[in-house]
Design a protein around this nucleic acid. Structure first.
Lengths: 149, 149
DNA sequence: CAAATTTATATCGTTCACGATGCAAAAGTA
DNA sequence: TACTTTTGCATCGTGAACGATATAAATTTG
């Protein structure tokens, strides 16, 4: 079989791509009532851990480019979840801070992780098995992270 | 810790999302010379396995909605990789077939999977470990696939 | 200190991804 | 056979992702 490797079923990346889309989709029922998307939820997770961060720190934490994060933050600002202020020491920076609405959303989002865990267990009958993938995923991510240097 | 679960580092989905983006990005150096994107490459994988499929079959195979696949196919048609003809028995269907260019691209793409495997081994020092994730990913995908019914 | 370089963010263009909706052909039903 | 429902695909609008490019502020260098 000369083209055996070109079979879809042999591709790890396709599985990651699909699993990512489907798990992100599984968040939708919980995020939609809050009026946020999954990437916006990720930004909130970052800010709930540490408020008042420059754009670059948020981008690095999420391993996204700033040209992805900037428009994302603009939409979140328009939605009243954050504000972006000029940095004090470095005026090139834009410091992203949670608004009252952004802070309060944490309470509404509190149960989302366990809701998702329950959904996944209910739909797959598993949980432990998926936790076992975490170290491998971390190793893969760590290896692929450093592309440009 | 009331909000412990809301920490980014505790989220499986974020890892899948990141791993997916980074592995897809790892294909870029190989796909860009061919003038195709990763989703277009997936469509080609499907058609290389079995030519002349209706839009719906391709979408189902990739677990994507037709409203994602249709514009994708339109771009691929414009690029001369495929043609879309009206179905014979069922004239609602659009049968997607590879063109000469689409068929020949298989030869150019033949080594991409092993190139990627080599890259990943070189960057992470691992390979076996990632193969171990496959059954878990399949189980996750299978469980989450059936959302609407 | 002036000039060159780097850094932080923003803008633009293209391509997904997907919910919502539309439409015509096919299938099922009265 | 007429009517309803379903199916297959397309279109539209919104929100990511990201490469390429722009701009101003900081930093480094000569």
């Amino acid at each position: 079989m000369e083209y055996e490797q070109l079979k879809l079923d042999n591709q790890l990346c396709f599985r990651l791509y699909t699993a990512s889309r489907l798990t992100t989709g599984a968040y939708h029922p919980y995020l939609e009532p809050l009026g946020i998307t999954y990437p916006q939820y990720l930004v909130l997770l970052v800010l709930w851990e540490k408020d008042r961060q420059p754009v670059n720190d948020i981008a690095r934490r999420l391993m996204l480019e700033t040209n992805t994060v900037t428009p994302l933050l603009q939409r979140m600002e328009k939605a009243g979840l954050i504000v972006r202020t000029k940095g004090q020491e470095d005026s090139r920076q834009r410091i992203v801070s949670l608004t009252k609405k952004g802070i309060e959303m944490r309470e509404q989002a509190k149960h989302i992780p366990e809701c998702l865990a329950t959904d996944i267990i209910q739909k797959t009958g598993e949980e432990e098995e998926f936790a076992k993938m975490i170290p491998s995923l971390d190793k893969l991510i760590e290896g692929l992270k450093q592309t440009n240097n």
